[in-house]
Write a protein that binds this DNA or RNA. Structure first.
Length: 932
DNA sequence: GACATCACG
DNA sequence: GACGTACGTGATGTCC
């Protein structure tokens, strides 16, 4: 049968099938030998579903699955950077590639590939031949590179969405019809394939230009006629690069294939061959389905719960049974556990303590687990319960081994480099052990594993993870400790309650670890976890334990001064209001201002209360003294309650210092968060607030050194969005906001006014946040139309920003997450939502790669810092997002600055190359105000 | 415990 | 064409 009119050729993009299958399924392995087969399983499922769906008038008469072959193609000879930033194929996928060919053959479908060519080229060759023969051709793929082939009998089918893409569909995507797609692609480039294109030009602009000039050649020839000066210059400067890009995206329709379409005729599967393959792979479910269709008996697969098409990740099939947990009361029993730990080489560890503050909490007991369902608790300092003893007893409860003896047995294991200690938030347990002189290493941390995979989806506390991923709700702590005034510490919990609670935590941790470990790999965040999360644990533990010296007297004096001023203001406010009321109550203030005094200002909020935020009061303050006084009072109230009062309570009794706690997995973007107290929001913007930093001091003989990245987020934006003008300005060391202003408003740098610069600065920040006309208008207190005008001009002058924003949103929509330059994944589950939620999600998605990359950079610096300053009499104390604060002996400050700056300015090396250099400013002083 | 407010990057 | 909007955090006070 010669292919021609009335015939229908299906071409399946096999590599895309494999990729989708791999990422859609958990890391399944063949039960009998542990070979990874997840991608093959998914691939077979997709093929099966495809075959079953082929009925009716659209059924193909000819079909082939086309694969890529080898990583080097003729395009690499044209351009050595082609696809150069592609990540290497995951280790557990590589061995599955040949099996996908075998699978295709087992389905009795033609399977084609050609050395030195991409699948797309073979598809192009066949599609063009099919068209020439007068037949139809459907390309089963959603790859936009194939869209240039659509039309005149050729169409595309997105198998996952079951959506057909015809000429109009292509126009929707590219703004041009298929014959001009390569022109648009040549201009827009492609960051995934590393096709350069024209810098700053995205699909939208490219389509605009092509439609105006007809085609790419005409456009390049008549580039002088382009109205926008920047765009004109870009096209003139990069003409060669654009032509190269076109030849990269242009598919080869004349690949030297050694077969014809006639060889691709649809064939019925050979039942024996297909079922044989499926049973060899141990795909039980699929075998059954296929056998049913073929009217055959399902092949017997040796009893193994190999989940061919498992929908849910595999969780250890062991039920939670609290009665199985063991109380370890003597050395003999503990040795049995240690033997088991040495046998397997890892152990889940959890500590119970007298509190949540690691600096003051004391160890009460340790739990261990090496196998799901099996865990023990080693109580150490539980008190005897004597209900008649009102004063509390120091007597130890029975059934506990001596504290020292237990530690002597545990310490070698905890410090043994050959034994992996697994914890949920190991920073906590590590610090508890560190108090006792025990250095726990090496470690794994299930909280951080979850964070690497699930940031943005949910919290990473143990209870949440257990419920979500193990389907098990751990015993709550509340009933054991009580709450409020009657709350007790864990050492008062009776043994029969303590053992199941404590041991269960180790059990849960171990199960989560077993579940997460392979998933990390699957989600491609192993590197993030291993280089950005886990190594930070000991670094932060050291910083938190070091703490910073705070001068309580200074704070106390400030508190008193604030109190006096506040009293004066309060009296004024009451007099101006004509009655006394609680100034600290926004509700009461709102009534006074808007009801009693009749000022303008609308209701807001669900409670129907007036809004009395600073921006509202600021507007009123020009006319009403009351508003101004309230603003002043509020500022003082904030400084006093949150800082000068509260900080005094955080001074540790033993060390005389303040020890914050950093959460590594708190912020979705990769930033740290600081709590108890938060030392990342100590005032600086107002002069009065700034003075609070004078209370953060260096001890006698030492000084504080602060190093902070200069404009790190804008630099990263310039790099990611490829804004040449911004990059160059940074390289020159220009005032970046003034440069932006000059560029936008056509004002020469030497005639810049603070007003214009201020506008540009607000826009620069706005861009990082996912700018909107409304938001900018509010920030600058200008009409919305004017703000929109600024933004339009900004996009015009820096077109790369638009492209970045559009590309990022599109990526988030397609994948459900965005990434930093270092591969950190930030999930964006709401990106597809309807309504205002979508706006929030989109702006967060735009911001996350920028904020997250900056966070990654300083994390890398912090991880390298201990080694870099090991020989200096210096300690790293605090991190404030783009700043690191050190304490150093007088005389060594210059050496510290040199060493730390070196680490910080090169923190991106060698993983990420930045087009913009990072620079770090340094300051030295006796206190934090002076050092910053 | 929800909400409003305000401190930081 | 209208919708409502700057990104990321944590701590405090009021009020129910």
């Amino acid at each position: 049968m010669t292919f021609g009119k009335g015939h229908h050729l299906h071409l399946i993009d096999g590599s895309a099938f494999i990729f989708r299958a791999y990422h859609a399924l958990p890391p399944l392995t063949r039960k009998s030998d542990g070979m990874p087969i997840g991608a093959v399983a998914g691939f077979c499922n997709m093929l099966h579903r495809y075959v079953e769906g082929n009925t009716g008038p659209n059924a193909p008469t000819h079909v082939a699955v086309i694969f890529d072959k080898g990583s080097h193609t003729f395009r690499n000879d044209m351009y050595d950077q082609y696809k150069a930033n592609r990540e290497a194929m995951p280790e557990d996928l590589r061995p599955q590639i040949p099996l996908t060919r075998t699978a295709t053959a087992a389905f009795n479908i033609a399977c084609k590939e050609l050395e030195g060519y991409e699948a797309d080229d073979i598809i192009a060759t066949l599609a063009v031949q099919a068209r020439a023969s007068g037949g139809r051709c459907t390309i089963i793929s959603s790859d936009k590179d194939l869209m240039q082939l659509v039309g005149d009998g050729v169409e595309m089918l997105d198998a996952m969405k079951n959506k057909t893409i015809d000429r109009d569909g292509v126009f929707e995507k590219f703004g041009v019809y298929p014959e001009r797609v390569v022109d648009v692609q040549a201009l827009a480039g492609d960051s995934v394939d590393n096709v350069p294109g024209a810098p700053g030009i995205g699909i939208k602009t490219a389509a605009l230009l092509i439609n105006e000039f007809g085609d790419l050649d005409a456009l390049l020839e008549r580039a002088e006629e382009i109205k926008q000066p920047k765009r004109r210059q870009t096209l003139i400067d990069h003409a060669e690069q654009i032509r190269l890009s076109r030849s990269l995206v242009l598919l080869d329709e004349n690949t030297p294939i050694d077969f014809t379409i006639d060889d691709l005729e649809v064939r019925d599967p050979d039942a024996d061959q297909l079922l044989g393959f499926l049973s060899e792979m141990e795909f039980r479910t699929l075998s059954k389905r296929v056998a049913e269709v073929l009217g055959r008996e399902a092949p017997a697969i040796p009893d193994a719960p190999a989940p061919a098409v498992a929908d849910a990740p595999q969780v250890a099939d062991v039920p939670f049974d609290h009665s199985k947990y063991e109380q370890v009361s003597d050395a003999e029993a503990l040795r049995v556990w240690l033997d088991r730990i040495y046998e397997v080489g890892y152990v889940a560890v959890d500590t119970e303590t007298t509190g949540l503050n690691e600096m003051t909490a004391e160890l009460v007991g340790v739990s261990l687990s090496v196998e799901p369902g099996q865990a023990c608790y080693i109580p150490l300092t539980h008190k005897a319960s004597r209900s008649d003893d009102l004063f509390g007893s120091d007597d130890l409860a029975p059934g506990q081994m001596p504290f020292e003896e237990a530690l002597q047995l545990l310490t070698p294991m905890l410090e043994d480099p050959a034994i992996l200690k697994i914890g949920q938030n190991m920073k906590y347990d590590g610090k508890i052990f560190a108090q006792l002189g025990i250095t726990v290493a090496p470690i794994d941390d299930t909280m951080l594993m979850s964070y690497a995979m699930h940031a943005g989806l949910h919290g990473h506390g143990m209870d949440a993870l257990s419920e979500r991923y193990l389907g098990h709700t751990p015993l709550p702590i509340k009933p054991l400790l009580g709450s409020g005034k009657s709350a007790v510490t864990f050492d008062k919990v009776p043994m029969e309650d303590a053992v199941p609670y404590a041991a269960e935590d180790a059990d849960v941790t171990l199960r989560l670890w077993q579940l997460f470990k392979p998933q990390l790999h699957r989600a491609e965040v192993t590197k993030v976890y291993e280089t950005l999360e886990r190594p930070l644990v000991p670094v932060l533990a050291q910083m938190e334990r070091a703490g910073i010296l705070v001068d309580r007297d200074t704070l106390s004096r400030m508190s008193n001064a604030f109190a006096q001023k506040m009293a004066g203001l309060e009296a004024d406010i009451h007099e101006l209001a004509g009655e006394t009321f609680n100034v600290g109550s926004p509700a009461q203030l709102g009534e006074i201002l808007f009801d009693k005094m009749g000022l303008q200002g609308g209701k807001k909020g669900k409670a129907g209360k007036y809004s009395t935020g600073a921006d509202v009061l600021e507007d009123l303050a020009t006319e009403h003294d009351l508003a101004r006084r309230v603003l002043d009072w509020r500022q003082l109230s904030k400084l006093k309650s949150t800082y000068t009062d509260a900080l005094q309570d955080h001074v540790n009794a033993d060390t005389g210092r303040v020890h914050t706690c950093y959460s590594i997995a708190g912020a979705a973007t990769g930033r740290l968060a600081s709590t108890d107290p938060n030392l990342q929001n100590i005032p600086i913007r107002s002069e009065e607030g700034r003075r609070i930093r004078e209370a953060f001091v260096a001890p006698e003989g030492k000084v504080l050194v602060a190093l902070d990245y200069s404009q790190i987020e804008l630099r990263i934006l310039a790099h990611i969005a490829q804004i040449d003008a911004l990059k160059e300005a940074f390289q020159r060391g220009d005032d970046i906001h003034a440069m932006t202003a000059s560029e936008m408003f056509d004002v020469p740098m030497d005639q810049m006014t603070p007003e214009i610069r201020r506008n540009a600065k607000a826009i620069n920040f706005g861009v990082i946040y996912g700018i909107s006309g409304f938001g900018l208008a509010r920030n600058l207190r200008i009409p919305r139309a004017e703000a929109q005008g600024f933004i339009d001009r900004y996009f015009e002058r820096f077109p790369g920003i638009r492209t970045y924003m559009d590309d990022t949103k599109a990526f988030a929509k397609e994948h459900g997450y965005v990434q930093t330059l270092f591969g950190r994944r930030i999930n964006t589950p709401n990106i597809g939502a309807k309504g205002p939620q979508a706006g929030f999600a989109a702006r967060a998605a735009i911001n996350a790669p920028i904020q997250g990359t900056a966070a990654d950079v300083i994390r890398r610096a912090m991880i390298r810092m201990p080694a870099a300053i090991a020989d200096l009499p210096a300690t790293m104390l605090l991190q404030v997002h783009d700043e690191l604060l050190f304490e150093v002996e007088k005389g060594a400050e210059d050496a510290l600055i040199a060493a730390a700056r070196e680490v910080m300015e090169n923190a991106n090396d060698p993983v990420v190359k930045l087009d913009v250099k990072l620079t770090v400013d340094a300051g030295v002083g006796a206190d934090w105000a002076e050092a910053h």
